[in-house]
Amino acid sequence: MRVKVRHSTEYTYDQAVSRGLQKIRLTPKNSGGQTVVSWDTGVEGGTKELSYTDQHNNLVELLSIAPGTRTVTIVCEGEVDTSDTAGIIGQHGGYAPLWYFRRSTPQTRAGPRVRQLVRDLGKDFDDDPSRLHALSALILDSVSYSTGTTDFATTAEQAIEAGQGVCQDHAHILIAAARLMGYPARYVSGYLMMDDRVDQDAGHAWAEVHVDGLGWVGFDVSNGVSPDPRYVRVATGLDYGEAAPISGIVYGGRNESMVVQLQVQQ
């Protein structure tokens, strides 16, 4: 399936920025059953300083924001061919060792609530995938999808406590639980083409868990499925922080506001 994406993010500051740097991870991966046909990232109000691939093979671009800037706009546009792999990304590649994906991070730390979730899940499963699908369903059951309760800094534990969350929170909880059960797990940020609309408010996020024999397998808790050809994988990491589409430091520039425009279609 060919998925077309146009994604624009505009930051506006009430007071001019004195200086800033932003790391962007917005270029889809050319692996795991998807091929980037074309992709372009344009920036207004900032300068692309350099690019490199990080420890997760994400393409990272570094933008500098010049003093006096009030608006920064980042626009990505392109097409990606995807295929149906039943959610299976395949064998682990790259130099980041599998044990690294068992490291917990502040957002994916397994506290009492994650532990309880894993106890509730039980152990009686035929195989790893069915166990993880059950976990995914249990998480959606305990934490319903709802915007506005959590934000980008919410931890897995906090989201369970709130009983509500968005795709980022679902992914963090699944990752925390999977690591607790001994699986390497990672966060994926990307795009999802929705059947009923073109315009979306934000990108999507889900989780991948490494299962012996199969390799990495994706789980989208929020939608209760494993990724299919409608999913475009962009960046991966131990948690949101390592895969964040845009992150950085801005000095000065008070009262930032952000407007996202996203269209995903066939």
């Binding site: 740097l21 300083e49 350099l50 690019s51 990080d54 990272v60 570094l62 430091i249």
Partner: peptide, 10 residues
């Protein structure tokens, strides 16, 4: 800020 990025970029 950015030293590590410049380093990784060579």
């Amino acid at each position: 800020p950015g030293l590590m990025d410049v380093y990784r970029a060579g």
